[in-house]
Structure formats: C-alpha cells, structure tokens
C-alpha cells in the first residue's frame, strides 16, 4: 500500500517518467488515477459496461505501449483521453454492425422503461434511452462538453475535430435530448 500512497502524491509527469525508466508498477498509479473518469465516459458513450471496460483496458494498454510518444507527460490525462475517444469511436462502429439486428427490439424496451421518470432509476434509464438515440458523433461531443466539462479548445485537442463542428454537434445533441426527455417528463 505504500506504493499506492506515493502514487497519490506524484504528478502525472513523475509517474510517466518512472514508467519510461522501467518501473512498470508505477503505471498502476496512472491507471488508478484515470480509470473512473475515463470509464464513465466510455460507459455513457458505448452504452454498456462490458464494452466500456474492454475499451478502457485497450486504451490503457495502448497508452502504455505508446507512452514514449506522450510529448507532454504532465498532460497525460488529456493524452490518454484522446486514445479512449478514438477507441470508443472504433468500438462504437463495430458495435453498431453487431447489434443492428436487435435494434428494433431494444427501442421497444427503451420505451417501456421510461414510463416513470420521477423515479431516479427510471430517469437514469430515460437518459440512457435518449442518449442512445443521439448520433455517436453528437453523443461524443455532448459528453465531453457537458459531462466531462472540457473547453472547446480541449475538445478540439481530444477529438481532432474543428471547433465549429463540435459546437454544432453539441447543439444538435442538446436539441435531441431536450425533445426526447421533455416528452418523457410530460408522460
């Protein structure tokens, strides 16, 4: 546990340097530091925990593999977030192929689940249902902006997408969510 305590007091840059110097175990400090925030993004973007954990595991392994290429170790968080965003894009594309067949049934289930939005669980499910109906690009932009609280400049860095396009995606995501959830609340 002593190692764990020391990780908490070490900066990202210090941990990255330790890993690059051969201290593989120091990487656990970076994983522990970012797993929850990255995991939250992946779960909401991909819509299920299993895919999210898969994406997260691959992200951390890829980040480790390319750690020497992390040009600014003090910004490891932003760098690994970018890897996750790309990983989720790829996995999202794969998932949409795999699950196309069952989408219609899922839609019906979603509607059945949102009957009582006053209930906290039902509200969470309603959000999940609505989020699933936002395009992946718009969902990505919405989560980064409103849930992860990234600035547009940071979003450009993480996604590689132009700011104007990101603003448009966030706007459209909000419009869709408002339309869907307002309807749920009225129900």
């Amino acid at each position: 546990m002593a190692g764990h305590i020391s990780w908490e007091h070490e900066s990202d840059a210090a941990l990255v340097r330790r890993v690059l110097a051969g201290d593989v175990e120091a990487y656990a400090g970076l994983v522990a530091r970012y797993r929850d925030r990255l995991g939250r993004y992946a779960v909401h973007l991909l819509g299920n925990t299993a895919d999210a954990e898969d994406a997260l595991q691959e992200t951390f392994v890829r980040a480790y593999r390319g750690l020497a290429g992390c040009a600014t170790p003090e910004r490891f968080g932003a760098w690994v977030f970018r890897i996750l965003v790309n990983r989720c894009r790829t996995m999202g594309a794969q998932r949409s192929r795999r699950e196309r067949v069952v989408m219609s049934n899922e839609s019906m289930l979603g509607e059945a689940d949102v009957a009582h939005p006053a209930d906290r669980q039902a509200w969470a499910e309603a959000i999940r249902w609505a989020l699933d109906r936002v395009s992946p690009e718009q969902r990505e932009a919405f989560l980064l902006k409103h849930v992860e609280d990234l600035s547009y400049q940071e979003m450009v860095e993480v996604t590689g997408v132009r700011e104007s396009a990101l603003k448009m995606r966030v706007k459209r995501a909000c419009e869709t969510l408002r339309a869907l959830l307002a309807e749920v609340e009225r129900a």
Partner: peptide, 16 residues
C-alpha cells in the same frame, strides 16, 4: 451522467 459508474475492480489488475 456525472455520477460515478461501477467498473469491474479487476480491470486495473488485467491492465497491469
């Protein structure tokens, strides 16, 4: 959506 999500505790172990 900002509420913590539950992830498999073994995830860190698998990565390492």
């Amino acid at each position: 959506l900002r509420q913590p999500v539950h992830l498999d505790a073994a995830l860190d172990v698998r990565v390492m």
